[in-house]
Each structure stands twice: as C-alpha cells, then as structure tokens.
C-alpha cells in the first residue's frame, strides 16, 4: 500500500506540475484581465492594500496547483486500491485511467456544471460561506451519484446483464441522481456582472485544466503500475528456463 501511495503522489505531482503550467499559460490570461477589471472598478472608491503582488500570487498559484496535485494523487491511489479487484479491465493502466476519469467527472465536472468556476471580480465576499457550503454539498451529492451508478453496474454484472443493458442503465441511474441534486440545490447567490466572454474564457480554462490534470495523473499512475509490475530481466531469464506452471 505504501508503494501504491508513493506512485499515486508521484503521478499527482506530474499532473500538478502540468496543471501549474496550464494555469500559467492558459489561466492567467483571463485571471489577469479579471484582476484589472476589479482594480478599475475599485479605483473610483477607496484604496485597497493587496497582501501579495500579482507576481507572487502567480507563483503561489503554481505552487498551490502542484501541492493540490500531490494530495489528489495520493487520494486517487487509495480509491484505486479499494476498487482495483472490482474493476473488470485488461490491465492496471486501464484501471488507473478509469478511476481517474471517474474522479474527474465526480469531483470536477459535475460540481462545475452546477457551480461553475468564477474568475476574480466575480463573487460577493459576504456570500463566501454559503457558496462554499453549497459547493461541498454538491461534491458530496456527486459522490453519492457515482456510488449509485457503481452499485447499479455491480448489481447488473452479478445478474449477468449484457454490456448494452448494463452501461445505459448505469449511466441512467447516475444521471437521475445528478439531476435530482441539480434541481434541489439552489443556484449560486451571486450576480455575475463581469463580461460573459471573460467569465467563460476563464471557466473553459479552469475545467480544461482539471481534465488535463486527472487525465495525466491517471495515465502516469497507470504507467508507473505497469512498470513496477513488469518482471525484472533476471526473473524473465528464470521463466525462460522454467516457465511457471499454469
């Protein structure tokens, strides 16, 4: 298990570093525009002391992305350990990528659709507590939805259902649970008064970064697992002399 955790953290580090580069190259464009918009609005009113310069915040953001990557990679490795023997796939690479794809949909994509990421300049400081709570409830509900789909797929597989029955039924159950959460939970309380183009440039960069992160972390974890399970040259030589009995 400790080896698997290390591989997960390493894969997450690779994903996190690429996420940091993605943030710097793709995300900082709209973030910079939003910060300038915020400053121009504020110029009329009172002066505002920033704790850190924009340059420091950009570096902090990149460090944050890398640390986030390591933590998310470690958690991904634990989820992988819990699910591995229940995932019907050809090898560990496919299993790792499957778990990472499920993680992307569950903790990034579904919460994003309900409460999309916003650039600076959008967001009322007074509603931050409420928005944070709603966001966490959405993530928790999304985990419930994925779990419900998982149970459905396990139940149908145990009953010997064919893939063309099992997969649509699984997606159907998952989508129904997600939809229920979307309907029941209230929308974000904040009005968005920044230009739609700016907001959506930022949102696409944000969800794109998450897709890159989970995709890459899953691939790297899979590669590391394949690499570490491959027999060493001496083992292979031994098998050539005395093939293992099947």
């Amino acid at each position: 298990m400790s080896r698997l955790l290390k591989l997960g953290a390493l894969a997450g580090l690779v994903g996190g570093v690429v996420l940091a580069l993605f943030l710097r190259l793709v995300g900082e464009g709209p973030i910079g525009d939003a910060v300038r918009l915020e400053a121009s609005r504020r110029a009329a009113g009172t002066a505002h002391d920033e704790m850190f310069s924009r340059a420091t915040q950009q570096v902090g953001g990149m460090i944050g992305a890398a640390v986030y990557g390591v933590c998310a990679g470690a958690v991904l490795a634990v989820v992988f350990a819990l699910l591995r023997h229940r995932l019907a796939a050809r090898d560990d690479w496919r299993r790792a990528v499957t778990v990472a794809a499920l993680a992307f949909v569950t903790v990034s994509l579904v919460p994003f659709v309900k409460y999309p990421a916003n650039p600076p300049a959008v967001g009322d400081p007074d509603t931050i507590g409420r928005r944070t709570a709603l966001y966490l409830v959405m993530i928790a509900w999304s985990v419930v939805a994925t779990w419900a789909g998982w149970r459905m797929t396990q139940w149908l597989r145990a009953r010997g259902a064919a893939d063309h029955t099992r997969l649509p039924a699984t997606v159907g159950v998952w989508a129904a649970v997600v939809a229920l959460g979307f309907i029941v939970l209230p929308g974000s309380p904040d009005a968005i008064d920044a230009p739609a183009t700016l907001v959506w440039r930022f949102r696409l960069a944000s969800i794109g970064g998450e897709a890159v992160f989970w995709g890459l972390t899953g691939c790297v974890l899979g590669w590391l697992l394949l690499r570490s399970s491959r027999p060493t040259p001496s083992q292979r030589a031994l098998e050539d002399i005395a093939p293992p009995r099947r």
Partner: peptide, 16 residues
Amino acid sequence: HEFFHDARHFVGVPCH
C-alpha cells in the same frame, strides 16, 4: 487565501 489565490480560482472553488 491570498498566496494560493490563483490556484483557488483555477480549480474552481468559490472565492471572495
């Protein structure tokens, strides 16, 4: 919050 500001926004969590 201020140091990791850009990463917070980017991973999509609610911010100020």
